[in-house]
Design a binder for these strands. Structure first.
Lengths: 204, 204
DNA sequence: CCTGATCCTGACCAATTGGTCAAACCTTGC
DNA sequence: GCAAGGTTTGACCAATTGGTCAGGATCAGG
């Protein structure tokens, strides 16, 4: 069944299991590097059974990506034009960092897609993402012109928040290896560091 | 021939052509997502001919990666313990940003490898990269303790330089799309922004 | 407990994959 | 200009790929 709305409890359970397994696999190997057999084995279902719930490998990927963009933009949507400028931007950074901690696979899925030139996400980037970014960049520009925070390129400011926070999900292996302790949690120190970085940048 | 040293001019030319094509393909699709046929077509050689110069697909990938780590660490090696602290760190950031501009495929190849858990690069990360990072983090720590620059977590400072500069290569499509003009060069503004960011962070 | 719908599987398929090989084709140095 | 080695290729192979299908197993409702 290729229906978007699961009809039975079995459908609900298995679709979740498939998407979860597919997220594991796609986020690590990208679309072309992933196979239905890997997803089947990871989900515990048979390959023909995957294709009973989704019409194709591409359909599974699209389903993951289409759900992703919404989640991805949530922290930015919450940036409040009426809040305290510096506090709002720092809170946004913290929400993005929290997403990297709790949803690292989603971050990697996104990174993989962009690395490949965003073949299946171009529309969402040109649409939702660009529109929201334009809107919030304008808000930030307003704050700067009003002298509430220091001047800086608003788009590159947003890029830097994306880059710095997602780095801790996408380059997790590198971060942990360089820090030496594979088990230790790098996020507390990262948060402190990033708070200082942006606090100094934005202080007039 | 799988020899590392090309013996004839034809060998030299074709090995370069193959590695160049492989860099194109691997940097976009990762190891598993790339095929010998793609590399063959991109390089203009036949598939059996590829395998005359390299023993396997994996050997081409390894050759690219082993050359990469050295290039990758060059800018950090040049960080001079005897130079002016703030100027040295800013210059390091500029060198890294310049590498993202001139070697975006290498940056993406690296990103792809790390995203997949660094299966073929773990040794280099635990070795060369960690050692050099430890060494330079100690230098930076020394500068901070001497009051030459403001205190900040030295490792996360380096992570932030890596993350911010590589972002402009790895997420190029997104950056250009959000900025609106696909043709425009985002790097000048990026450099100005990053100079401000790190200048403010490091000023005591 | 029966029947219709849902769910699942083994067997299968054509295309693509990484890789081999013998034979033919070039270069190069004498 | 001719051998000897270097280069290239078409034909081929076994394994893997995404996907199909007929039929059997299981479930839900009456």
């Amino acid at each position: 069944m290729s229906e978007t709305q699961p009809r039975t409890r079995i459908q609900k359970k298995n679709r979740v299991a498939i998407l979860n397994a597919a997220l594991d696999v796609f986020s690590q190997f990208g679309f072309r590097g992933s196979t239905l057999d890997q997803i089947a084995k990871t989900s515990g279902l048979s390959k023909p059974n995957l294709l009973y719930y989704f019409p194709s490998k591409a359909a599974i990927h699209v389903e993951l990506l289409s759900g992703l963009m919404d989640t991805w933009l949530d922290p930015l949507r919450d940036l409040d034009p009426n809040g305290d400028p510096k506090a709002e931007i720092l809170a946004y950074m913290r929400r993005k960092l929290e997403m990297s901690r709790t949803l690292p696979r989603e971050s990697r899925l996104f990174a993989n897609e962009i690395l490949q030139g965003a073949p299946r996400m171009m529309a969402a980037i040109q649409g939702e993402l660009k529109e929201l970014t334009d809107e919030k960049a304008a808000v930030i520009s307003g704050w700067m012109e009003a002298g509430k925070i220091a001047r800086a390129h608003p788009y590159h400011l947003l890029f830097s928040i994306w880059s710095l926070t997602q780095h801790y999900a996408d380059f997790d292996v590198q971060v942990r290896t360089v820090l030496g302790d594979l088990e230790a949690d790098p996020f507390p120190d990262a948060e402190t560091y990033l708070e200082t970085l942006f606090s100094k940048l934005l202080t007039v």
